[in-house]
Design a binder for these strands. Structure first.
Lengths: 153, 153
DNA sequence: GGCGATTGCTTGCGGGTGCAACTAACCATA
DNA sequence: TATGGTTAGTTGCACCCGCAAGCAATCGCC
């Protein structure tokens, strides 16, 4: 039966996906490394730069980054040390810590973004073309929809 | 210019991909966890079970798993401790260590595979349908081809 | 045959992450 | 107001991983 194992073409697609994702992430990390940051750092910069007043609550940021609370604490430690982010306590709820993008962090973001965008273009968007990019979005939209349907139940 | 940043649709596709991959891997890991192994462990079982005489040289296995030599050493440590894999020295080249799948490891593989296959079907193949699966393979084939073209140069 | 270069694997070390436990603060209800 | 439950964030611990160093064995070339 087709349900007990994968057909040859299914297996080909699946393994292609699994192995290429690994290489792709490594390539993106490698392109970002000369700038002194990781993909994780970059995503912090992106989210904070797009946030109102360039700041987010730790818990919201952790959710956005798909990171555990402790994971975010440690990641921010590094970014604070680099001067890209500041912690600020919240007046209205003293449990909350704001992660606030500094001017230096915003400058870093603007300096690095073009390179990273070019990297994504080179490794992903250009090889796929507009049609492939649309398919990529649709495919992972479908997978994500199924995932989020099942989980919160 | 379109080359300095991503269009809205490009950004949508890209973020959808990045975030869903994270959730997808977490879901696959979670489905595998009750069996007492990780995706990494499972992949070792797959490669060794498909290998000639159920064994591979460490360096070849590391390449197959996209793992550094030290990473493989540690992963095998765990699998040896669980009795799924044995190390065996090679007669013809005494630098080489064979990673050899034990009977217990093969049994584990056969016991777990149907569940994992079902997990992949549920989270990926079913939501996409045959056409989507083919697109998935093509997309990452294209990305992978571009990656491997550039690197070895 | 011999010696430098290469290959295969392991170990030390540091970085990144999640889980569980903990503290602090907020909230809801009596 | 008092108390139990919830939420936000940090810290301790363990795990996984890659890099660099080290060691052993093999290969290549004189």
């Amino acid at each position: 039966m087709a349900t007990d194992w994968l057909s040859e073409s299914e297996q080909h697609s699946w393994r292609n996906f699994i192995m290429t994702v690994h290489d792709l992430m490594a390539a993106l990390e490698a392109d970002l490394a000369p700038h002194g940051l990781t993909m994780g750092d970059y995503e912090v910069l992106v989210w904070l730069s797009e946030a109102e007043q360039n700041r987010m609550r730790m818990c919201d940021l952790a959710g956005a980054l798909q990171l555990s609370p402790s994971g975010l604490t440690r990641r921010l430690d590094g970014m604070v040390k680099n001067g890209w982010v500041e912690r600020a306590s919240c007046e209205s709820d003293r449990r909350v810590m704001w992660a606030h993008l500094t001017g230096s962090g915003l400058a870093k973001m603007k300096a690095v973004a073009p390179d990273h965008v070019a990297s994504v273009r080179r490794h992903v968007l250009d090889p796929l073309g507009p049609e492939g990019v649309a398919q990529l979005g649709e495919i992972f939209g479908n997978i994500g929809a199924r995932l989020h349907d099942a989980q919160p139940a």
